[in-house]
Each structure stands twice: as structure tokens, then as C-alpha cells.
Design a protein around this nucleic acid. Structure first.
Lengths: 222, 222
DNA sequence: CTCTAGCCTCTAACATGCCAGCTGGGAAGA
DNA sequence: TCTTCCCAGCTGGCATGTTAGAGGCTAGAG
């Protein structure tokens, strides 16, 4: 939690990204750099650097000599990000079944226990955090730094649609079962089952998104 | 002023990236920003922006208040990038078997023909370009823009080690056969075989790298 | 000869001023 | 009233001056 040695540019980057992901800044909304400078007490330089980095991540689009805007959510993009995420996470699940350390398995077991508690308490926010953690435990305990980065980059985009989706309460019980299936396959060191369980899990997420996209087409750009 | 299609920062970025990928700037070498400013006739600002973007791609590392350096090649990183690439390309191969357009298949067939010519002519440089093209045809004709970007990002890093590897001449014939296997599986619309053929192909690349890393450990940082 | 402390240099980070291009709105003419 | 064209006011891109901190080098002490 100590972001002691962060540069000003990093700080602005964090603030902006947070605002975009939570939806405080809506897709298509212009970014007023000068207002940001004043509000955060910095010059235009770190703000420009931060916006530039976000443009690299495709979270904002810069129209030269015109303005910078929060990028719109494209159905095609989401679909493809889900494709990439599925491909990666399935391999990671298989890899986990193959060589996840004892500590990693313990961490997963602990996460599962807390997930069950969150389901009992019908605490969707808490459950979501644990959901993210479940997947991050796999990458971090397998030492897959870059995979984690790639997935985090994808998640950043998918997070925006998740806010819109706001999964129905019953959904978390399904997710819990999915995670349980992946976990037991990993415990059994069954790579094939781990891969397919993860595939099933993410197929559910994808299906959920497709349904939502059909129901609320006005929220997406393409 | 003259006609300007891209910003100066983009230009500097391109030049620097090219220099890093070709090895003109070696891993660990410091980047003299002022010399760059003078050589390209720009101020420090676009150079800083370019270096910052490359740092985001992990092609350079910035040590605050000290200097910017071309990032060293880490064995672990390469291993993981190959892992990610394999996971993605296998799914892409399966997807291609499922729904690659007629034009995509024609493009692949054309590529294969030119690959055969390059093998006959023992033109390794030409063959490498066609190798890259083979994989890019899949992403572009499937409309997988972001996957292509992710893979290009990975390839940028892997390109550096490929320069070192400089595959033995006999290797290109093996690669040609690998591509042929993937291609025929796609033609047959056999997703399972396409996936496994691609897996075999990339396993060969991975194996080649591991062998090289054992032979020349001094070239890597970890 | 070795180790250490302090200065000196070189770097990235940041502030600020200027420039050029795009847009939108208003004025002028049909 | 509608259309066209010009200008003013935004915006991002760029140049350049300033600041602060990390590291190396040297000199002095043990």
C-alpha cells in the first residue's frame, strides 16, 4: 500500500486509470488536462506522460491538436480480449496442474474458503475481489510475471464492461463452482481437466457478455 | 515546414526500436539522449517520450536520475514470452481451422509457395520474413487486431534472441514442414490437429532457444 | 595499500513558454 | 433563412530552462 517512491507522472497515471476503470470518466468523455494539472497540483508534463501511457494501453485516444478522450468500448475488442484471456488462462491452468507449488495450492485453498464465505454472505463486491485474486494466485505462484501483466492489461479493459454487467447475484454461486472445478483439477494434477475446467469457466463469462451486449447494444461502439 | 505524417516522437520511437531490435544498440548499453537529439535534430522532449514508451514495452529500463539502458535479455522472460506466444498461437490456429476465410487460406497458400521457393534458394533472410508473415496472415485474416498487437510485442523481444540464434540453415526446412502441417490442418478444418501442429511447431522453437541458452549462457542476464 | 567520505558530474523529472492545427461559432453575403 | 468562410480560442506537440538525486571519482585518513 506504500506508494512512496512514485513519480508524479505515476501518480497522475494511477488517478486517471482509476477514474476510467470505475467509470467516473465515461467512455467518450474528453479529458481536461488543465483541470487535472490544477486539481493534482502538477504541471502539464506529468499529465501528458500519463495520458500518453494510457493511450498506449488503448484506454484513451488522443486526437492531435484536438483533444484526448476516454476510449469507447468496442464489442469486437471485448470479444477478442476475452479470446486472448481464455487462451492464456487455459494454458496457465494446465501449467498449474503440472507444477504449482505447495504454497500456491495452499493460497488457492484459502481463496476458495473465503470465496465460499462471500457467497454465503452474498457479498458480490468481496466475491469479485476474490475472483480476481484466484486468477492472480495462479500467475504469481507460477512466476509468470509477463502473463500476469498481459492479463492485467486485459482485465483493465474488461473491468469497464464488468461494471456494466454487474453480474446477477445468483451468478457468483456458478463462478464459485467453476473455481472449485479448476481447483480440484489442479489438486489432482490433471492438466487436461484443469484446462477444460478453465475453458468452461471463461466460456460462461463470454456467454454472459454476449447476452448483455445483445440486451444493451446502445452501450457499445461496434 | 515540410510534410509531416507522423509526430517527431513517433519517428524517434521507430528509430530507437529498430536499433534495439537489430542489435545496433546492445543489451545493457546506455542510451545517450542528447546525442540522439542532435543526430535526429529534435529536442529532448520527443526523445523522452519515445524512451518512455519503450520502457513501457520493457525494451529499455529507466533508472531514475541515473540513465536509460537497453534492457538485458532474461532467460526467464524469453521462456515466459514463448509460453504466452504458444498459448495464443495454438488457439489462433484452432480458430483458423474453424473460420478462416477463403482469402485467408489463399494468402496462406501463397505464403507457403514462397516459403518453398526461399527454402530452395536457401535464402534465410527471405524465409524469416515469410515465417513472420505466415503467422501474421492468421491474425489479420481472422480480424484479431489485439492478438496481433500482443504477438507483435512479444515478437519484438523474441526478435533480439533470434538475431543471436541465427537458425542453422537446415532449420528452415523443418520450419517449412511445420508450417505445412499447420496449413493442411487448417485446410481440413481440423481444429484439434491445427492446434497440436502449431504446438509442435512452437515447441521446436522453444527447444532451439533452450539449447542455445545452455550453449551461450554469457549472453543472458538470468 | 585500502577504505571511506564528500564533492562533482551527469541524468531523468519536472516546469513553463511557444507554436501549429483543428473546431466551432459567428459574421457576412446570397 | 441558409450557406459559406474566416477568425478566435482551444488543444496537443515541441523547445528549453530548472531541479534534485544517483553514482563515480578523488582525496584524505587509517
Amino acid at each position: 500500500m506504500g506508494e512512496r517512491v512514485s513519480s508524479k507522472a505515476d501518480h497522475v497515471y494511477g488517478e486517471l486509470k482509476e477514474a476510467i476503470l470505475t467509470g467516473a470518466l465515461e467512455p467518450g468523455e474528453p479529458i481536461d488536462k488543465l483541470a487535472l494539472c490544477e486539481r493534482l497540483g502538477v504541471s502539464r508534463f506529468p499529465v501528458s506522460a500519463a495520458v500518453s501511457r494510457l493511450a498506449f494501453e488503448r484506454l484513451v485516444v488522443i486526437e492531435p491538436q484536438h483533444g484526448s478522450f476516454v476510449s469507447r468500448i468496442s464489442v469486437e475488442d471485448v470479444r477478442e480480449r476475452l479470446f486472448i484471456r481464455t487462451a492464456l488462462e487455459c494454458e496457465i491452468a494446465a501449467e498449474a496442474a503440472l507444477r504449482l507449488s505447495r504454497e500456491g495450492r495452499a493460497a488457492l485453498a484459502g481463496n476458495m474458503a473465503r470465496e465460499r464465505e462471500a457467497v454465503e454472505a452474498v457479498d458480490r463486491q468481496k466475491f469479485y475481489e476474490l475472483d480476481v485474486e484466484f486468477h492472480q494466485i495462479l500467475t504469481s505462484h507460477l512466476g509468470l510475471r509477463h502473463s500476469g501483466e498481459v492479463l492485467d492489461g486485459l482485465r483493465a479493459h474488461l473491468e469497464r464492461v464488468r461494471r456494466l454487467l454487474m453480474a446477477p447475484a445468483g451468478r457468483i454461486r456458478v463462478t464459485l463452482n467453476d473455481h472449485q472445478a479448476v481447483f480440484s483439477a489442479i489438486e489432482a494434477e490433471d492438466t487436461v481437466r484443469a484446462r477444460s475446467a478453465m475453458a468452461d469457466h471463461l466460456a460462461g463469462t463470454t456467454e454472459q457478455f454476449e447476452t448483455f451486449a445483445r440486451e444493451r447494444p446502445e452501450l457499445f461502439s461496434a
